[in-house]
Simulated assay, not measured.
Amino acid sequence: MGERREAGHVAHRQVAHAWAGDVFAADLDAADRVRLASANEGAEGPLPSDVLWDGYRRRLEADRDAEAVTYSLWVDWFEDPATSATAFAEVLGDDIGRVVAEPSEAVLLRARRVLECSGPVSWTVKESTYRTAVRLPALHAAVFRGLLAGFHDVYGDLEPAAALALLGPLDLPADTRHPAELRKVLASGHKNHYRSPGVWDEAVRSCS
C-alpha cells in the first residue's frame, strides 16, 4: 500500500508539473509565464514557491472551472503528509482570518474550493481553519463537505468529537445530503469510513 501510494504521488506530481503552465498561464503576466514554463525543466531547479502558490490562489479564485487545480491540491499536495501542511497554509490556512473578516466573491470561492477538498489534510493542521470558517455562514456548506470528505476519503483525517462539535452550528441547506449520518458516525467515535467498514451503511439505514 505504501509503495503504491508513493508511486501514485510521484506520478501525480509529474502530471501536475506537465500541465502547470497551462493551468496558471492565463492568470500570470508574461515574465511569470516564462518562469513557470521553465522552472521545473531548467537547471535552476523546481518551481519557485511564490509563483507556484500564487498561481494556485489565483486559479482557485477565478470564476471558471477549477477541477484540475482542486484535483492537484487533493492528490499532489493534501494526501502527502510531507506537503499537506504547507500547501493548506498557502492556499487558505494563513489567511482564513482575513477571508472571514473581509469576504469577497473571489476569496470565498477559493475558500470553498479548498475546504471541500481538504479531507486528507491532517486534523491538527486544518482544525483551526475550520473553526474560523464556521464563523462565516457563507462557508458552512463547504466546511460540511470538508468534514464529510475527512470521513470518506481513503487518507481522510478528523477527530470525531471535535468534528462533531463543528457540525453543531452549521446552517446547511435543507437538501444537504448526509448530515444526520455524519453526526451519527462521529458521535459513535468513528474517524474514517475505511477504518470502520459498514458503519456508514448502518448510519444511512438508521437515518432513512
Rank of each mutant, 00 (worst) to 15 (best):
F78S: 08
E181I: 06
E6Q: 13
K191I: 06
Y155E: 15
A187N: 06
P103K: 01
S104D: 07
A25D: 12
L47Q: 11
D32S: 04
G189D: 12
K191H: 14
P48T: 06
V121C: 12
A165R: 14
Y56L: 04
H140Y: 12
A106V: 00
A43T: 14
G146F: 04
E105F: 00
N192F: 07
R59T: 03
D29F: 01
W77E: 13
L28R: 01
K184C: 13
W77C: 03
A43L: 13
Y130E: 00
T132S: 09
A18P: 00
E105S: 08
L60P: 05
E3S: 12
V10C: 07
L115F: 06
L186T: 06
E202H: 11
R131E: 12
L182I: 07
A26T: 06
E44T: 12
A11V: 08
D27Q: 10
S72G: 12
T129G: 06
P48H: 07
R112M: 03
C207I: 09
V114P: 01
V91N: 00
R5E: 15
A11Q: 15
D157Q: 14
S84P: 00
L170E: 10
G55K: 03
K126W: 09
E41D: 11
A11C: 11
W53S: 01
L92M: 06
R177H: 07
L109F: 00
L47W: 00
E67K: 05
K184W: 12
R33Q: 15
A43G: 09
P120A: 09
A68W: 09
A39P: 04
R195G: 13
H17W: 08
W74P: 00
A7T: 13
L60Y: 04
V143E: 01
L47H: 03
V75M: 07
A163V: 09
D32I: 00
A87I: 01
G97S: 11
Y194V: 08
A87P: 03
G42E: 10
H190P: 01
R183C: 11
L36H: 07
V134W: 02
A180M: 02
A68D: 10
L136H: 08
P197V: 13
L164C: 10
A87K: 01
A89Q: 14
Q14R: 15
R145Q: 15
R13N: 15
A11I: 04
Y130A: 03
V99W: 00
E202P: 02
L139A: 06
A18Q: 10
F88Q: 05
E105C: 00
N192D: 11
L148M: 10
W123H: 11
Y56H: 03
V121W: 10
G45Q: 09
G168A: 13
D76E: 13
S72R: 04
P137I: 12
G2W: 13
L166W: 03
V15T: 10
R131N: 02
T132H: 06
Q14H: 14
